[in-house]
Design a protein around this nucleic acid. Sequence first.
DNA 1: CGTTTGCATTGACGCAAATCAACCTTTCGC
DNA 2: GCGAAAGGTTGATTTGCGTCAATGCAAACG
Lengths: 252, 252
Amino acid sequence: MNALDTPPECSGRVDRCLECPIRDRAVCTYCDESELSALEALKSYRRFAPGQEIVAADEEMSFLGSVVDGVVSLSKTMADGRRQMVGLMFPSDFVGRPLRPVAPYDATAVTGVTLCLFTRHRFERLLRETPALEKRLLEMALDELDAARDWMLLLGRKTAREKIATFMVILARRTASSRKMRPGDGLRFQLPLTREAIADYLGLTIETVSRQITVLRKDGLLVFEDARHCVVPDYVALLDAAGEDSDGGVIA
Amino acid sequence: MNALDTPPECSGRVDRCLECPIRDRAVCTYCDESELSALEALKSYRRFAPGQEIVAADEEMSFLGSVVDGVVSLSKTMADGRRQMVGLMFPSDFVGRPLRPVAPYDATAVTGVTLCLFTRHRFERLLRETPALEKRLLEMALDELDAARDWMLLLGRKTAREKIATFMVILARRTASSRKMRPGDGLRFQLPLTREAIADYLGLTIETVSRQITVLRKDGLLVFEDARHCVVPDYVALLDAAGEDSDGGVIA
DNA sequence: CGTTTGCATTGACGCAAATCAACCTTTCGC
DNA sequence: GCGAAAGGTTGATTTGCGTCAATGCAAACG
């Protein structure tokens, strides 16, 4: 029995999909108005508090859907407690494993989170009947796969300093793209994750995260207003510290 | 200009898709006979020698298709030469990035490889017209994503010994499943990769790979007939050394 | 108001894996 | 059959990051 098996609540609700803030990027992007009204009839909203578990690994998942608001982490835990984050989902990302009854990872609300949900059963039927949905889901899965592969390079080969710099670049890019702009000098963004979550993301310990953030701060690559708000004075220098060739300029 | 831009050769050719060895698992699995004959009209075969580059990162890819025979690695390289493998493709796996003109990684033939290819242009049109193809591609992308996430746990949190043990488990599983059986005690398999490739796969150096293989051998978890052929005397013990809870018994 | 609790920082120390280096074995071209 | 090259093993040494431990700091609480 997980949180998603309890009846959905109705907070953060957007009745009309056309007015939905993630309409242009979520799984429903390619749906026309009639398809959208089919979705409207079946969707429900659910709100999660920071730290709340959304689903546990290997548990049957009865709901899946889109992140409307907030940040969700996907993570795997070994028998002895070692943990690795394997996904970080922002608004418009799709949470849940379509076509399989169980998700092979824990999903946890990092911040307060609103999800737009469908029962797995209904969603899979919609998927069969709605090519627009399937096409978008394929696109999203392939994009996630690309991101996972960048992440593998980070985990396998980057130094702690490069890992932190890369993480900051990712947040900067995310923040910029959600404002439909390019990342650049002076960009200010929030760190939605605790040091522990950052460590789980990067395959480090909290102590190393803390130390390397200090290093980047002392090197002038990051300026902190407080522990959770950060400014990038020189974006290209940060990219360089991240070990990236250059920014392809993806607004994705 | 990459290898795939040269005209395809005709070796390893299987004229009739119905007789294809990967028919039951490849991207064309759900296609009916008429769809299959559309594929037959457009496909071509190409053979690659061990070590040969198939495509280079960020190059325009004019072909994509299925691995019919052999093993293909996908890898990313940093500016200073550090390299991380991000995918390892066996027969029936699909090589290439659908819906994007460039692949963000190098693809290299590890062993001798036969690919069943389509021009990207034609394949993307087929994809639009053939829901059976799209459905299977989505399934395969989601499965790859699951595999990538297991791999992230390995790269971020496992020790060198656990990494080697996990790698051997993966090969054992692959070998067993290609023979449509469960992995078990006494299973014998080949290592298709050099120590260097294994190191790139696991985020280690060749020396550490060599040492840890020796450790597992001395611990009795692996028995080597020669450097490239290995027997697993006790499968559960190997799983345990890999830090896996237990084997779900997936024949996928 | 002081205490607790959660989160973050900093320091000292140890260890696992990288690095540097030598050497062995097999394969391959000539 | 010889020399070179590629792949693999083993040893000595270094080092980056983890571990253990102490301290700071702010919000939450009785």
